[in-house]
Amino acid sequence: MEDEGATRDHVGSLERGLAVVEILARHPAGMTLTEMAEEAGLTRAGARRFLLTLVTAGHATQSGRLFSLSPRLLTVARTWLDGSSIWTFAAPILREVAARLNEACSAAILSGEDVVYVARVPGRRILSVSLEIGTRLPAYCTSMGRILLSGLPPEDLETFLAKATIDRRTPKTILERALLAEAIRKASADGFAIVDEELELGLRSMAVPINDRTGRIVAAINVSTQSARFTVSEMSEKILPVLLGAKQRIEEFFFV
């Protein structure tokens, strides 16, 4: 009976209309009526009705023979994001990482010379400062910062390296800008970054990027731990696979 009810309530035309929207999203340069009919498995008349309905509703535009999504859908998405941060939905994934490793797990974005925490699941107290959503830390000496900097266009990274304030936080902090550039390039090549006691003595952290569907780095997630609990090599063996699994789940949920 439940299956019959679900079938009765299923609106096939809405489902096909949403499929048309998704197809248009994959073709930002626009599509012709014939191309849409072929890709969506519709008749030309059916594809025409869906496309013209989207145009009338303001969710698509028509230029000659080409149909494209309109900025109105960006407004819809932005409204959803404003009310429901993706990190609200990604938080369970970060909690799983923290529970599995018994360590803190966080997410951050780049803002100027700093990283800004957008999500955090606390673990053991390993920092002298309290970290919470909105906390800012210098990008140059943090694992998430190195990852986020590795995603900058070359000219923006060059500007950062030339102008950033770089202070000695610990005896291990990299101060030479050429060495810092090398560490950022290594993070880009490796696909992860490890910062070993450069922010605070006794603290090691590992971060991986969160990429959108174009491959652009939009955020980073990390695990922070005490240097007595994990060596650098153990972090690569035990923490990295867990972080990469979380990265994949977040990207698949939000960006695929």
Rank of each mutant, 00 (worst) to 15 (best):
A193G: 12
S150R: 04
P209Y: 01
T165L: 14
G202S: 05
I194F: 10
E200C: 07
T159I: 12
V195T: 12
D167G: 00
A164V: 15
L179K: 10
I221R: 03
R249Q: 13
T159M: 13
A164K: 14
E234T: 07
S143T: 11
A189K: 10
P209C: 01
K186D: 15
S188M: 08
T165E: 15
T225N: 11
R169E: 12
M235E: 12
M206D: 10
T170I: 04
I250D: 06
E197N: 03
M235L: 15
D190L: 10
P171Q: 07
I194A: 08
S236P: 00
D190G: 03
G151D: 00
N222G: 10
L152P: 00
Y140I: 13
S143R: 11
V218W: 04
S150W: 06
F192W: 14
A162M: 12
G151R: 01
Y140A: 13
A162L: 14
N222W: 04
M206P: 09
I166K: 15
R216G: 02
L203Q: 00
T225P: 10
R249D: 09
T142Y: 05
R229M: 12
K247L: 00
L149V: 05
L148E: 03
A139N: 08
D167T: 14
Q226T: 10
I184W: 06
F160K: 10
K172R: 15
E197F: 02
Q248Y: 06
R213Q: 13
T142F: 08
I239R: 07
N222I: 04
P209E: 02
G145T: 09
E155L: 15
R168K: 14
R204P: 02
A220Q: 04
S233H: 11
L149Q: 05
I221S: 00
L152E: 05
L149S: 02
T142N: 09
V195D: 02
V232Q: 09
L149F: 04
M206N: 11
Q248G: 07
A220N: 04
D167P: 01
A193L: 12
L152Y: 01
M206Q: 12
L240R: 13
L148I: 01
L157H: 09
E155H: 15
T173I: 09
A219W: 03
I210K: 00
I221C: 00
L152C: 00
L199C: 05
F230A: 08
E237F: 04
G245L: 01
L244H: 05
A246K: 02
T231S: 15
L148M: 02
S224W: 00
R168T: 11
K172P: 03
I194L: 12
R216P: 00
L201T: 09
L179S: 13
G151M: 01
I250Y: 10
D212C: 09
R177T: 11
R204L: 08
T170M: 05
M235F: 13
I210P: 00
S224D: 12
E155N: 13
D190M: 06
G151L: 03
E176S: 13
S224R: 04
L175H: 08
A162D: 15
M206L: 14
A220C: 08
V232D: 01
